[in-house]
């Protein structure tokens, strides 16, 4: 009976062609590999996403919690036609991007989660995701929304996205924006980079293990937890700040 029910609950995935891995040099001078991960590798990603759920800055909390759900949904067969690409630097997880194929013409972009800041890792990973939709899956357009101002600035302004406000996006039902093939082609030269094939040693290293990010975004050390709690009748800011400080240990210097 349980097996029968699972059959009903589990969507039937259409076979999606794989994303050919690529690599690029980032601002730090390191090589970054962007590759697709299989369903079997999802459990290796989840532990690195989970801590970000508690990073209440730059919208990491809301993006991480949704990415976690989407990864789990993919792993446990609850999202149809989903794919996940990751970026790795020295084997370390640098970014996760995902989305799904709605039909043969339209793709849906889900999330871009950068685990390393300041290197435009997210921009590279997002561009790779769009490349996958347009060049590999052959979509005519990709529906996009931004949950953070950073995302909005990057995707909406850099790519000059078109409005599709009549379409509710799968993420939260908010009005969609769309990247069309002509817009993508216009942005291709400046925004879509990367070289193929990936040198074998580099690819092997990336595939060998998904290492934890060495400097992931951390929750703000709540400098002013005590004074903040004055505006916080339940004192949860104070409690949270204490828990965090206990977890982090005392930061270096008088931060």
């Amino acid at each position: 009976m349980a097996v029968e029910l699972e059959k009903i609950l589990r969507p039937v995935d259409a076979p999606l062609p794989p994303f050919p891995p690529k690599f690029m040099k980032v601002a730090s001078g390191e090589d970054m590999v962007v590759r697709q991960v299989s369903r079997e590798e999802i459990p290796d990603l989840l532990p690195h996403v989970e801590p970000l759920i508690h990073v209440e800055r730059d919208y990491y909390d809301i993006v991480a919690v949704r990415v976690y759900a989407e990864l789990l949904g993919y792993y446990r067969h609850r999202v149809q036609d989903e794919y996940v690409l990751i970026a790795q630097i020295n084997g370390e997880l640098a970014a996760i991007v995902n989305g799904r194929s709605l039909n043969k013409d339209v793709g849906v972009s889900y999330h871009t989660l950068a685990l390393r800041r300041g290197l435009r890792v997210g921009a590279h990973a997002f561009a790779a995701k769009m490349e996958y939709h347009m060049d590999i899956l052959g979509h005519k357009e990709v529906l996009i929304v931004a949950e953070s101002p950073i995302g909005f600035r990057r995707w909406m302004i850099e790519y000059h996205l078109e409005k599709r406000f009549n379409v509710a996006h799968e993420l939260g039902g908010v009005p969609s924006w769309a990247l069309t093939k002509p817009l993508f082609d216009a942005a291709r030269d400046t925004l879509v980079v990367g070289r193929r094939p990936v040198p074998e040693a580099l690819l092997k290293k990336a595939q060998a293990a998904i290492l934890p990010p060495s400097n992931p975004p951390k929750p703000p050390a709540d400098l002013l937890g005590a004074t903040r709690s004055m505006n916080d009748p339940t004192a949860s800011a104070l409690l949270l700040s204490r828990q965090r400080l206990a977890k982090l240990g005392e930061p270096e210097g008088k931060v």
Partner: peptide
């Protein structure tokens, strides 16, 4: 807190995007 290199921001084929 982000080291950068001349190669990454100036010389690599991806520098203009970085």
């Amino acid at each position: 807190h982000q080291p950068i290199t001349i190669e990454g921001i100036l010389d690599s084929p991806e520098a203009l995007t970085n």
